[in-house]
């Protein structure tokens, strides 16, 4: 099945994820588990941005 997905409509959702993960990361300097797991989420969010062709905008 072919779906029509507009990457531009999904991009703000990814930006929200990125912003929330960044808040967790910034606030967890003394909590290694939160800090390192949010850092990994940020890396995965970067993959979402690549998936959406962010750099081709």
């Amino acid at each position: 099945m072919e779906q029509q997905i507009d990457p531009k409509q999904l991009a703000p959702i990814v930006e929200d994820l990125c912003r929330l993960a960044q808040v967790l990361y910034d606030r967890s300097q003394d909590w290694p588990a939160l800090n390192r797991n949010s850092r990994r989420i940020l890396a995965s969010v970067e993959m979402l941005k690549i998936n959406l062709g962010r750099d081709s905008d």
Binding site: Q29, D30, W31, P32, A33, N35, R36
Partner: peptide, 10 residues
């Protein structure tokens, strides 16, 4: 990150 924290999950 603060490496001196002794606990992974304080």
């Amino acid at each position: 990150m603060n490496y001196d924290v002794p606990f992974w999950n304080p």
